[in-house]
Design a protein around this nucleic acid. Structure first.
Lengths: 205, 205
DNA sequence: TGAATATGTGATGAATCGTTCACATTTACT
DNA sequence: AGTAAATGTGAACGATTCATCACATATTCA
């Protein structure tokens, strides 16, 4: 087990970029198919059609490879949520929440199987934990939005606290719907429940 | 790696029961201290003051040992929640939710470190997944409670759906508070937020 | 007391894994 | 064409793991 976190060689030629891309694609596929523990570097390299040595030329170890995957996935989610909230910054709080919920569900649906693995099976330790702080970034975005709509907020609701509550609840509900109860999303009923949950909490109406 | 799931010998003498107990206690301690991946059977046996052979006499493999730990923990949580809901079955819906929230937080606090490991680091595969269905059992209990208070429920709220939403949200919030933001529990403010969230959703007031 | 059964031991096997490194091949550039 | 840099290869290594089994000890009970 290497503790070496030294940055590996950066791909300079097109050929090398294709290799890195193939490795990451293969890593995602193998993670989905085999789970984190059985996703060995050898299997990933084989799936990528690359030798094991090439893998270690661009990623110092397995952990860093998975971290790269997580970071990319996290960025996608945060971007999706951010877009939704900034796009509705001048509409009502309820409209914003509706957009947020839609974004959260959409984000989870980008690659549900990979999301499930990354979220449930990847150990939350070391560098991996850092890459997984989607939560904090999303909560911040929500807090900003709530401050912009403080007038609609129920008396004495602290935006920071409310953002924490809303993020936690919506993340859990989106996750459950997309990962475990995909049937709930057939009709729009479940999104309606989520909206009802957060708006009545936030506005107190 | 053995796939053998054959039931191992049951402890018949007191001595053996003590051994099994020591193994489970040690397993919890080692899991907390080292994490799931580094919690080797050898380390657990050493910590228990037992030989590795004894461990394998009562547990067919590491997975089964952890599963036993999970099952016990899950039963504790379900029991705590069940008590709270049945004790308040004749009080108001809000009182019941207050008790439920208190129970959820208490349940998470029984052994927060172990809970965190079991919840976040143990791979959700095979037998482990089955043992982890605390969720389903708690949701059922909540649904029963809600049906008993259907009169107080907002128009057209389906008890099954509402139970799902409430369980998911409260579990996520309790988890976050106890595991990541223990500071939030100093004052009772956070429990208040949780109560506000679910009661305004359920009663629509 | 002594035999049958239950329990405990730990060296050892067998498998797997992450990672390295000496070397081969390909590309870029003069 | 020729050379240096970039990229690719995969056998081999060391470390670690789970799990077994032949044997020793303790307990039960006739």
């Amino acid at each position: 087990m290497a503790k070496d976190a030294n940055p590996r060689k950066q791909p300079r030629q097109e050929r090398a970029k294709a290799t890195v891309d193939a490795i990451m694609k293969a890593a995602a596929q193998v993670l989905i198919a085999e789970g984190y523990e059985n996703a060995t570097t050898a299997r990933i390299a084989e799936r990528a059609g690359v030798s094991i040595g090439s893998l270690y030329q661009y990623f110092p170890n397995k952990e860093a490879l998975v971290a790269a995957l997580i970071e990319r996935h996290s960025d996608e989610i945060v971007a999706t949520v951010d877009e939704a909230l900034t796009a509705t910054s001048h509409e009502t709080l309820e409209d914003g929440m509706r957009a947020l919920i839609h974004a959260a569900v959409t984000a989870h649906r980008l690659d549900p199987k990979l999301h499930k693995i990354l979220h449930e099976q990847v150990p939350r330790v070391g560098r991996l934990a850092k890459a997984l702080d989607t939560t904090r970034r999303v909560t911040n975005a929500i807090e900003v939005f709530l401050r912009q709509h403080e007038a609609e907020l129920k008396n004495k609701r602290d935006p920071a606290m409310a953002a924490l509550v809303v993020e936690t609840a919506l993340e859990a509900l989106s996750h459950k719907a997309v990962i475990e109860r995909h049937d709930l999303l057939r009709s729009g009923a479940f999104e309606g429940e989520m909206l009802s949950l957060v708006t009545s909490y936030l506005t107190g109406k």
